[in-house]
Simulated scan of single mutants.
Amino acid sequence: MSLTETQQNQLLALARQSIAHGLQTGRPLPVVVADYPAELRQTRATFVTLERRGQLRGCIGMLEAVRPLAEDVAENAFAAAFRDRRFPPLAAEELANLDLHISVLSPAVAMKFASEADLIAQLRPGIDGIVLQEGGRRGTFLPSVWEDLADPEQFLQHLKQKAGLPAAYWSDTIQAYRYTTEMFG
């Protein structure tokens, strides 16, 4: 799926409106899905990333597609601004200097690998988003994380830590899934 520039701009405006609505009401902007073109009504998973002065200010999303794209963006924008536990809720004066980025995810595909080295060899820097799962622990990095962690071995070590596992951890039951994103903003 490739969104037009107009559709991308619609989603970015919707994300900003949902955050502004949240500042006023404490709730995400209600979305009337029928008001949007067919592409924005498709069930898709997204992440919304907020940055302020080049620094991460919030990032929340869904790995599985469970609601229409426009609604997912509105919900995740609100959550990134007000529910990301790493940051205090967004203050009204921060909105003007907020940069928004939206990542629309492809469906995740299970990866098959025989060892940690095999998994590392299959990673595609700059292309893959990865979900790592072991038992009840799970973490993901969007493809944009490759900008900061370009080495596949480091990427995987940091992802293990994000999932709550030690960096050197490995087991034969660990699972990995790859996805790609269309990112804009």
Rank of each mutant, 00 (worst) to 15 (best):
residue 103 S to M: 11
residue 38 A to Q: 07
residue 128 D to M: 10
residue 139 G to Y: 02
residue 48 V to T: 02
residue 134 E to F: 04
residue 42 Q to F: 00
residue 116 E to F: 00
residue 39 E to M: 05
residue 129 G to I: 09
residue 51 E to R: 15
residue 102 I to P: 03
residue 102 I to R: 13
residue 105 L to K: 14
residue 62 M to D: 02
residue 40 L to H: 04
residue 95 L to A: 02
residue 98 L to H: 02
residue 123 L to Q: 11
residue 137 R to N: 08
residue 46 T to Q: 01
residue 56 L to W: 06
residue 88 P to H: 06
residue 86 R to S: 05
residue 126 G to A: 10
residue 77 A to H: 09
residue 53 R to I: 09
residue 57 R to K: 08
residue 134 E to Q: 15
residue 49 T to C: 01
residue 147 E to D: 13
residue 44 R to F: 00
residue 42 Q to T: 06
residue 54 G to P: 04
residue 97 N to Q: 05
residue 58 G to S: 03
residue 38 A to H: 11
residue 81 A to W: 06
residue 114 A to W: 03
residue 57 R to D: 00
residue 90 L to C: 04
residue 78 F to H: 11
residue 87 F to R: 02
residue 52 R to K: 13
residue 109 V to C: 11
residue 129 G to S: 03
residue 131 V to D: 07
residue 134 E to S: 11
residue 67 R to A: 09
residue 85 R to A: 09
residue 70 A to D: 01
residue 139 G to H: 03
residue 53 R to W: 00
residue 65 A to Y: 00
residue 68 P to H: 14
residue 103 S to V: 06
residue 75 E to K: 13
residue 126 G to F: 14
residue 110 A to K: 15
residue 56 L to E: 05
residue 78 F to Q: 05
residue 64 E to T: 12
residue 45 A to G: 02
residue 55 Q to N: 10
residue 99 D to W: 06
residue 42 Q to I: 00
residue 87 F to L: 07
residue 92 A to C: 00
residue 146 W to A: 02
residue 71 E to G: 01
residue 42 Q to L: 05
residue 76 N to R: 11
residue 77 A to C: 12
residue 150 A to Y: 02
residue 150 A to M: 11
residue 63 L to P: 04
residue 43 T to V: 14
residue 109 V to N: 13
residue 147 E to I: 13
residue 112 K to C: 15
residue 63 L to M: 14
residue 105 L to H: 03
residue 144 S to M: 14
residue 103 S to F: 06
residue 51 E to K: 15
residue 138 R to L: 09
residue 108 A to G: 12
residue 46 T to S: 02
residue 147 E to C: 08
residue 44 R to C: 00
residue 47 F to G: 01
residue 150 A to D: 05
residue 103 S to K: 15
residue 73 V to M: 05
residue 129 G to N: 04
residue 62 M to N: 07
residue 61 G to N: 07
residue 148 D to L: 11
residue 138 R to D: 10
residue 77 A to F: 14
residue 150 A to V: 12
residue 109 V to M: 15
residue 104 V to I: 12
residue 103 S to A: 13
residue 107 P to L: 07
